[in-house]
Design a binder for these strands. Structure first.
Length: 444
RNA sequence: UCCUCGGUAGCUCAGCUGGUAGAGCAAGCGGCUGUUAACCGCUGGGUCGUAGGUUCGAGUCCUACCCGGGGAGCCA
């Protein structure tokens, strides 16, 4: 890695410093490991010490007769999560978790840890989240956040291959983008600024300049939501394409979801296994995803005894029931105008509808994507801004986009945490972000 | 904002029709040479969310408030 190899880190004649993740290359060799004591067990004559170094966990074995009384007692009394450096011979052994263990010849405490708050037995989520900075060292958060990392990388790689330009949207914004959600307000010198709730409008400007663009960054919603699907700060991916219609956006979404899912299946097999995720549910993901209209969705819901009034959005239970009718994510498109945002394009076949689309994830994970075709008609857009009670001056730059070479354009927004939550099978999205922000959590 | 469940040891929880506070884990000490959330023994550890009220007596019953979990609304 970088300019130094593992083995260069040792001094002359000293065993090489390596990582747990690469131990299989050193079977039979003496190596050094630097990490933290994840857990220890001992009897009077033999101690088993689990060393964690961020790349994996390995069992280190110390026999009193082999290492001497002083080192043996140091090792068995070391507190959990103490920083340690060990030297030993790598040995394949089926009794060791992971298949390899280290037969210790040296054990040094780099920094002794105080009593670690997170114990070996169960804890409540609230307690664990209060100690999120320490909880990150545990296996489950580690697996989920490694998958999140893969997803971020796979998304950027997908859009790069597809010819998109990454165009970062601003986080400070002068006014509401959509006018519906509650915004976080901040002092901005002598005026007020708001934290962005969507980069979409800026992406529309970008699409007219770069043709295909996307932004991928934090988004803020001051909604007082207390559900497993909501955070006040979350990451959103928002691609936008010029000369593109609703079908183009739908195809882009299903290919991206499929591509990213396959990368995770390939790269994070061990993490998915630790999370006890049913791989077959993810392996089934392939284009095309089923597409149903809003009206067809209402019919399915009515069949299952869940009456939704025409014009209303679906609730969490409705989404779950709908998604359960399919084994892949399902697109719901062509929505009643009143259920969607002001910038949505009218359905040319029936102006009671707009060309919006949601993607519902399977297994009750709900809406992970919302998007559609935006209106390219200046007069219609101005009418909609007025009808929604928005200030035209705030949207002057946005309406300009329809004044200077307006073309059909489409895109969508995807909530990263909901997507990762579905891939990982987590119960709550707060586990899918390193330091979650919710209505009553701003710490740590 | 509304509905619902909860708040007892550092953590996870038990505590019945009201009668002076319990377990497991963690911590400390001791034992054990192949453990897998090791096991066995001993020790220390409490303003029962807060404030009132009922009662001879409240963790337990009543009222208000505070805090948290889940859900609705809203949304990704």
């Amino acid at each position: 890695m970088l300019h130094r190899k593992d083995s260069d880190l040792g001094g002359a004649g000293e065993p090489p410093v390596v990582t747990v993740g690469s131990l299989d290359r050193y079977d039979g060799k003496v190596v050094r490991l630097r990490g933290w004591l994840y857990q220890g067990r001992s009897s009077g004559k033999i101690a088993f010490l689990m060393l964690r170094d961020g790349t994996g966990i390995v069992q280190c074995v110390a026999g009193r007769a082999d290492v001497g009384d002083e080192m043996f007692d140091t090792a068995r009394h070391a507190t959990r999560e103490s920083a340690i450096e060990v030297t030993g011979a790598v040995k394949k052994d089926d009794r060791a978790p992971g298949g390899f263990e280290l037969l210790l010849s040296a054990f040094d405490v780099v920094s002794a840890a105080a009593e670690f708050p997170i114990g070996k037995k169960s804890h409540g989520t609230s307690f664990l989240m209060d100690h999120r900075h320490l909880w990150l060292r545990s296996k489950r958060p580690h697996a989920i956040l490694r998958i999140r990392s893969t997803v971020s990388l796979a998304i950027r790689s997908f859009f790069d291959r597809e010819g998109f330009t990454l165009l970062d949207a601003p986080i400070f914004t002068p006014a509401a983008c959509e006018g519906t959600s509650t915004l976080f307000e901040t002092d901005y010198f002598d005026t007020k600024a708001y934290l962005t709730q969507s980069g979409q409008l800026y992406m529309e400007a970008g699409a007219m300049a770069f043709r295909k663009v996307y932004c991928f960054g934090p988004t803020f919603r001051a909604e007082k939501s207390k559900t497993r699907r909501h955070l006040t700060e979350f990451w959103m991916l928002e691609p936008e394409m010029a000369y593109a219609d609703l079908d183009d956006a739908v195809e882009l979404a299903e290919h991206m979801v499929t591509d990213v899912t396959r990368v995770v299946l390939d790269r994070n097999a061990a993490d998915l296994e630790l999370l006890e995720r049913d791989r077959s549910k993810l392996e089934a993901i392939a284009p095309p995803f089923p597409r149903i209209t809003y009206d067809e969705a209402l019919a399915i819901l009515a069949e299952k005894g869940m009456a939704v009034k025409w014009g209303d959005d679906f609730g969490g239970d409705d989404e779950t029931v709908l998604a359960e009718s399919f084994d892949k994510p399902v697109f719901v498109w062509k929505w009643p105008k009143e259920a969607k945002a002001f910038y949505m394009k009218s359905d040319p076949d029936d102006d009671r509808y707009v060309l919006g689309v949601d993607l519902l994830a399977p297994e009750g994970y709900g809406e992970i994507i919302g998007g559609g075709e935006r209106t390219d008609d200046l007069a219609y857009l101005e009418k909609q801004i007025d009808a929604h009670g928005l200030e035209p001056e705030s949207f002057a730059w946005y309406t300009d986009l329809r004044r200077y070479g307006s073309v059909p354009h489409s895109g969508f927004g995807m909530g990263l945490e909901r997507f990762v939550g579905w891939l990982c099978g987590t119960h709550h999205v707060r586990e899918t972000i390193p330091f979650p922000r919710t209505i009553n959590r701003l710490y740590p």
